[in-house]
């Protein structure tokens, strides 16, 4: 379980996150939606402590990250895999080697790596491309490699920072389908940040709406929840509910 207690973060004079609290349960798909600059990417980066909050605390499965040593944080990060908008693959490594990196980092013996890497690539349907380099792949394939890399070490949580923002609608659907399967078959908790309402609506069970560094509301992704959102965040959420892009403001 991931819990953020009253976290705040400031970049020079800009307040990116203002006193945010939220709690994500094991096994759920949790969405965070908001316009650009709402603070959602900063928030998801706090969950694995890539961004340290100036105030407040981040608790992962009962461990407050500000109370543990850096080495322990590195260890915790291995169970909180992350997928990025820009894929962030190593261009000079093959697909296979990219996916194998987390296993190398957690000192899995070389002989045990091959099966796990291939299994992970099979899961995202890219086993045949294992000897290609990222530069030879399409955007959707790169993102699936990034997901395979995130999965290979059997994480308990997958943090997805705008994973479909650079993709066309068809490829977005493919990636969302993979994320759904990861949650259903492997029981991995998924936290997804997006500014695309359709992505959040099609995937998430609970949604937090953010704007201006603050949480507007957290609701269930059902008609009642959407109705509640509409009344709690007024104009901003109405735009989201109409199926539009939160950036269309």
């Amino acid at each position: 379980m991931i819990t953020l207690h009253n976290v705040s973060k400031q970049f020079e004079s800009f307040e990116a996150i203002k006193n945010v609290s939220l709690s994500i349960k094991s096994g759920e798909i949790y969405g965070i939606i908001g316009a650009s600059g709402a603070g959602k990417s900063t928030l998801i980066r706090m969950m694995n402590y890539i961004e340290k909050p100036d105030e407040g605390s981040v608790v992962i499965d009962g461990e407050a990250l500000d109370q543990v040593k850096h080495k322990r944080i590195r260890h915790i990060r291995q169970s909180l895999a992350m997928v990025f908008q820009g894929y962030n693959l190593v261009g000079n490594k093959t697909v296979y080697d990219n996916v194998a990196v987390p296993l190398e980092l957690s000192k899995v013996p070389r002989r045990d790596r091959a099966e796990r890497v291939l299994e992970s690539l099979r899961f995202v349907g890219l086993e045949t491309l294992k000897n290609q380099y990222p530069g030879q792949l399409s955007g959707g394939q790169k993102q699936r490699v990034a997901i395979a890399r995130a999965l290979v070490n059997n994480p308990s949580v997958l943090l997805c920072d705008e994973p479909t923002s650079s993709l066309d609608p068809n490829t977005t659907a493919e990636v969302l389908e993979v994320l759904k399967r990861i949650n259903e078959r492997l029981g991995v908790t998924i936290v997804i940040v997006s500014h695309e309402m359709e992505v959040i609506k099609s995937l998430c069970q609970r949604v937090t709406v953010m704007a201006d560094g603050k949480v507007y509301d957290t609701v269930e992704n059902n008609p009642t929840g959407v109705h509640h959102m509409e009344h709690s965040a007024e104009g901003f959420v109405k735009r989201l509910r109409s199926g539009g892009d939160a950036n269309d403001s």
Binding site: A81, G86, L105
Partner: peptide, 17 residues
């Protein structure tokens, strides 16, 4: 690319890694 470094940190890589 800064993103590659960010990915490395998110995977729990040490400075040496």
């Amino acid at each position: 690319p800064k993103g590659v470094m960010e990915a490395a940190v998110s995977m729990g890589a040490s400075i040496k890694d």
